[in-house]
Design a protein around this nucleic acid. Sequence first.
DNA 1: GATCTAGAGTTGACGCGACAACTCTCCCGG
DNA 2: CCGGGAGAGTTGTCGCGTCAACTCTAGATC
Lengths: 162, 162
Amino acid sequence: MTETRSLEPEEWEFWDTWMRAQRLLTRELERGLQRDCDISKAEFSLLVTLWQAAGREMRVGELSESLDWDKSRVSHQLTRMEKRGFVKRTQYGADGRRAGVGLTAEGRRAAQSAVLVHGGNIRRHFLDSLTPEQASVIRAWSEQAVARLEPHRSEAAGDGAS
Amino acid sequence: MTETRSLEPEEWEFWDTWMRAQRLLTRELERGLQRDCDISKAEFSLLVTLWQAAGREMRVGELSESLDWDKSRVSHQLTRMEKRGFVKRTQYGADGRRAGVGLTAEGRRAAQSAVLVHGGNIRRHFLDSLTPEQASVIRAWSEQAVARLEPHRSEAAGDGAS
DNA sequence: GATCTAGAGTTGACGCGACAACTCTCCCGG
DNA sequence: CCGGGAGAGTTGTCGCGTCAACTCTAGATC
């Protein structure tokens, strides 16, 4: 019965349309972010996560956990953003590893303005395009998908800002 | 009225969950493709598009149009895939530009098997997770979003394989 | 207290994706 | 015949994202 054969043309088309919609939407939003705030989606995510920490410094591992990014990705991104002056790494131990990560003043300014602008774009391009029924169905599917695909992350948490 | 203020926390969470679900799903599928077929999502898209041309050679511009990829992206991808032996560029004019693109035997083999395997993964991870209601709502939203965000592409067309 | 190991972070390499600049050909008007 | 522009492809550059390899520290074990 459930022999899992490949897809019917109609199913392929569904899949293709869905992927295309996602891609167009995220592309549009990312372009807006770049155009209006001169930051990338990755920068936005990191800025917001640190912003939500409200001044407290975060560890790389925390960021990695909270964003669900590979640690090396966080590290690379921090390096780029340190160059741009958005974040700083402050050393703990005498000389070695164990850095804490915090926003610079510049980073705080960028985060604050980006949240406003990007939030507006999300509303215009996504939220406003949904009927109430679509919103609730899509929300339900998303939660269900996250629960299924993200075994860990059981309690509290909930945040991030892809 | 429609003063487009930024988002409420609840709206941010919706957005975040949705993005997260998308990312988890595409990550899962891409890993499956890499694991089972040793090809990337980009390679898959290109292979399938050429596969559907059923032996006919395609122009770079055609691929670009059909996949909705930047022409330079197509060109870079072709260069990588030529190295892997999946595609070949055949020259037209005496010496200059104007290349046609076709699959190699290796490319055809890879395309065929990838369609089976990846199709099955899509069914398992996506289609099977949808109730009929969710499926129809999501399909409707996708079509609506594509229509809104993709002004061109009015007639015929329809295909691709993100 | 010397060694072993687990954890935290970094680095390097490489493919993907976007953008801008460049090349070449072809065609068009003079 | 020649200069100029439009269209097709390519190339370079840089940021994003993943994987594997490496470094350093701190704790555990003997």
